[in-house]
Design a protein around this nucleic acid. Structure first.
Length: 480
RNA sequence: UCCCAAAUAGCUCAGUUGGUUAGAGCAUCUGACUGUUAAUCAGAGGGUCACUGGUUCAAGUCCAGUUUUGGGAGCCA
């Protein structure tokens, strides 16, 4: 007998009445004392394949082993379905139960489960329609990211996950050590003696690959890093993870406008790719959202998922400066009526998520790119504008997500960068290598960071970031 | 970390002003039914009411602490 055929291919097959081998997991099992029906799924498609089992032809003890969650290998004939719910089905001739799933103990039922329950069973949640769809979309987005950059002459640089610099400034870090925590070597003044540690110094998991990818940029011109990043912030929200994946391109000879152009093109490319390659899964996700929002009043319901994605493609992102945004917010109704928790008084205010949401969801009603932030609220490496008070930073704000991309033109001038580092008292003794990019052949360059799971939230319409990554890591949670 | 809410059967939930033996639907098990679509119908089993302590004649219900979960905030991607 031939090799197994993936269910996706069988469902699309035009040649019927042929012998096939199909393998997968039973999603549903029902019938009567004469004929049983097993809905089989192998992950190749959202759709299940119906396996028809004529009870007379099989050993009763073997059939008894079949239940929801078990794995089967089936040989049979692909036929036009006699029933109404599907085009084709496989009439089984031999069935082997590869692995049983005790129905008293298997937690995934053929019904809707709460996302909380599935998070507690994250090891099994892949076996649901929802997480199958999410993981297929996730894979397609990963592939599209590499395709986008490859097509444009970018090189993928693997930046280190273990870093010896402690001044990246992007958040709290997880320490990496092989020292015996119960018996730490100490220096004469009583501090931990890191010269005894594996790397001979204190090391952490990276919070960003940007500084390293800038080094490669100063030779390869167009580069990107796409890897996991780690933040030890104690943040418990639907938008933060302790371990998440970030895409950080860095482009030589590009200014802040080039940076915005490519960031917008990038996001639109990824959304278009999802629409072109994940249609069935997106339709499923859309339907799920519609069902979920049925309890809400009509005015609070959001645009259907696919329509929302198409809307983003069809419209230019609204570009404006931080100063212009402050003006809009200052004069906005909620600000004047005191409906904002943090009132906008004028230049210098850090925008809170309520303000970003107002701009994106109420005022412009589309994605917004904000530029020219006050230097005080942005990172040290951003290019200082001639006005002496703002930097060439840009944030892309998406509805429902908030900041999806943060980027900037980098300060290429050694003296200006060094002065900023001194002003902020950043400990740069371990960062001599970064400053060398400005000492030797510095060029204007720009880049940005896209939080991959935030993109996934937008594309899938999911609302909790813990549901768009296979194994979420967040405070008090590293079970699976 | 802060604010608000919640934790009852495998799952989703109900449980009145504190008062006999804590309920339902789904799932599971048994049976019925010749093609089902989250099949249907009948019956059965299934509970340390998150944990610890307190108030009370009496606590799933009230109080305190702890843990976990959800929503929001901060930090950010």
């Amino acid at each position: 007998m031939s090799k197994r055929i993936e269910i996706k291919n069988l469902l699309e097959a035009t040649e019927l009445d042929v012998k096939v081998v199909v393998k997968g997991w039973v999603r549903n099992y029902r019938g009567n004392s004469f004929v049983m029906f097993a809905a089989l799924n192998d992950g190749s498609s959202l759709q299940n394949l119906q396996v028809v089992i004529d009870i007379e032809k099989f050993d009763a003890a073997e059939l008894k082993k079949i239940s929801v969650g078990c794995s089967l290998s089936v040989e049979g004939t692909l036929k036009a379905s006699e029933g109404k719910g599907q085009r084709v089905e496989v009439v089984a001739e031999t069935i082997e139960v590869l692995g049983i799933a005790d129905p008293e103990k298997y937690p995934i039922q053929p019904k809707k489960h709460s996302l909380e329950f599935l998070r507690e069973n994250a090891h099994l949640r892949f076996r649901t329609n929802l997480f199958g769809a999410i993981m297929r979309v996730r894979h397609n987005m990963i592939y599209a990211i590499h395709t986008f950059f490859t097509e444009r002459g970018f090189y993928n640089i693997h930046t280190p996950l273990i870093t010896g610099s402690d001044c990246e400034g992007a958040g709290e870090m997880f320490q990496v050590t092989t020292l015996d925590l119960n018996n730490l070597p100490k220096t004469e003044d009583g501090k931990v003696d890191y010269s005894e540690d594996f790397f001979g110094k204190m090391t952490n998991l990276t919070v960003s690959g940007q500084l390293e990818v800038e080094l490669a940029c100063m030779a390869l011109s167009k580069v990107y890093t796409f890897g996991p990043t780690f933040r030890a912030e104690n943040s418990n929200t639907t938008r933060h993870l302790a371990e998440f994946w970030m895409i950080e391109p860095e482009i030589a000879f590009a200014d802040i406008n080039d940076d915005m152009d490519i960031a917008e093109e990038f996001l639109k490319y990824l959304i278009q790719y999802a629409l072109d390659h994940c249609r069935e899964d997106l339709e499923f996700l859309q339907e799920r959202l519609i069902q979920e929002e049925k309890s809400k009043p009509e005015s609070e319901r959001s645009m259907p998922l696919i329509e929302k994605l198409q809307f983003v493609l069809a419209n230019d992102f609204q570009r404006l400066t931080y100063t212009e945004a402050i003006d809009i917010l200052k004069n906005s109704k909620p600000n004047q009526k005191g409906q904002f928790k943090y009132k906008i008084e004028g230049f210098g205010a850090d925008l809170q998520s309520e303000h970003e949401r107002y701009l994106v969801e109420k005022h412009f009603k589309k994605p917004v790119i904000l530029t020219g932030y006050p230097k005080e609220i942005k990172a040290f490496y951003m290019k200082q504008n001639p006005d002496g008070k703002t930097v060439a930073a840009m944030d892309i704000l998406f509805p429902g997500i908030g900041e999806i991309i943060g980027g900037s033109e980098r300060e290429a001038d050694f003296d200006k960068l060094n002065k900023r580092i001194e002003e902020l008292h950043i400990p740069m003794k371990d960062m001599w290598w970064y400053l060398d990019t400005r000492r030797f052949g510095a060029v204007p360059h720009s880049g940005f960071g896209l939080g991959f799971e935030r993109l996934m939230l937008f594309v899938t319409g999911m609302t909790n970031i813990r549901d768009v990554i296979p194994f979420p890591r967040y405070p008090k949670s590293a079970e699976f």
